[in-house]
Design a binder for these strands. Structure first.
Lengths: 206, 206
DNA sequence: TTATATACAAACAAGAATGTATGTATACTG
DNA sequence: CAGTATACATACATTCTTGTTTGTATATAA
């Protein structure tokens, strides 16, 4: 049984990526071998080497497929200029939506866990961190724009500049994401994540 | 040249821990071998195996020596009940002090970097995460107590419960620490870390 | 002073993991 | 329908890494 059709080949490629996600999650990226991944995908290392250059290549494929979409989604929900929803609520909704995504989408939850606590950012992986930082900057900018609209509409209880507010919100949410991921049993943060977001926004609402 | 005095032996043990910190930092924990560490400490693996059971053992020794003190210090500076300094300023000072520590103390800066982005929390390392979460709970409790005092003294601009305020502050600072570590060149977060802390506190001051 | 435990260095053995090279059945192309 | 490229499986060679074992000079205890 060899030489599948193109669709079959693409399917096994996706199966390998899925397998990598499962293996990375349980063994961490470094300790995961191509043999592990191949076995999990019920193929041999031959197939893996056919589709990917090496483990790093798989990691990047996994990130592109499962991680970046979540970033994009957050970026988009923050960006839309709505007239019938105030900017503070928009920020709140956007953050809650991301938490919802993590709750509902197993793949995204796992990919976050991998990237946050099961990957060492050295050598070939160091650049990933910078890309994440870059994404964060974009998100923060969007949040800042929302706060600027909130100021225009006189919604804020504070006179802090939108730049400071945006960074504070971003850091809050960044911390929440980290804790959400680490709180595997859900007892500390996951169960009250949305309440925390609401409090955070409420704090600056007039 | 063998069989040093007890003091000498303890010295080489510390040298090995220092070497491990350096090697972990540049290669990540997983990719660091005992050979790397031994060479960095200018000893052989024989010495390493004499003082430590394995790499995990070294990691824990490193954490106990360099990481836990910072936690304790933060816990302490938050805990002292001062009469001539208001609780909000106390929180602010405590957070700033931690940032100062990171700026001034190379070892602490490196150990944080290792534990945040150069270590995979699987298997033997998984428990470390839970211990960190536990530490975080303690810190949050202390922050909450400070906010309770702030309420008593009518210092707050918000009616949010101290529990929510404490978690918001903790998450903010958690995010700040993560970003501080990742922002290696200092252009994004490190240079304005203290200003961000001040803004965060100012937001809730009456 | 002698015996013993200490603090390593050096050598050894075994298993992983990687990358590559080779084999091969079959989809597809001309 | 023959030839070729594809999509893998299998086999191989090499390099790392680990843990253990052995050796040994010397501080220290008796």
């Amino acid at each position: 049984m060899v030489r599948k059709t193109k669709e079959d080949a693409e399917l096994t490629k996706q199966r390998i990526i899925d397998a990598a996600r499962a293996v990375f999650l349980t063994r961490g990226v470094s300790r995961s071998t191509l043999e592990h991944i191949a076995t999990e995908a019920t193929v041999t290392r031959g197939a893996v080497y056919w589709h990917f250059k090496n483990k790093t290549d798989i990691f990047y494929a996994l990130r592109d497929r499962n991680f970046l979409p979540l970033i994009d989604r957050m970026y988009d929900t923050l960006g839309v200029r709505s007239d019938n929803i105030d900017p503070l609520t928009q920020i709140e909704n956007s953050l809650c939506d991301t938490i919802n995504q993590l709750n509902e989408n197993t793949e995204m939850r796992q990919i976050y866990e991998i990237m946050m606590i099961k990957c060492e950012y050295v050598d070939e992986f160091a650049t990933v961190l910078q890309q994440i930082l870059s994404n964060c900057s974009n998100i923060t900018e969007k949040i800042q724009m929302a706060y600027e609209r909130a100021i225009e509409q006189n919604l804020l209880s504070t006179t802090l500049p939108p730049h400071a507010l945006a960074l504070d919100t971003h850091l809050f949410f960044s911390g929440l994401m980290h804790m959400w991921v680490k709180d595997a049993d859900g007892s500390r943060f996951r169960h009250q994540a949305k309440a925390l977001i609401q409090s955070h926004i409420k704090l600056r609402r007039l």
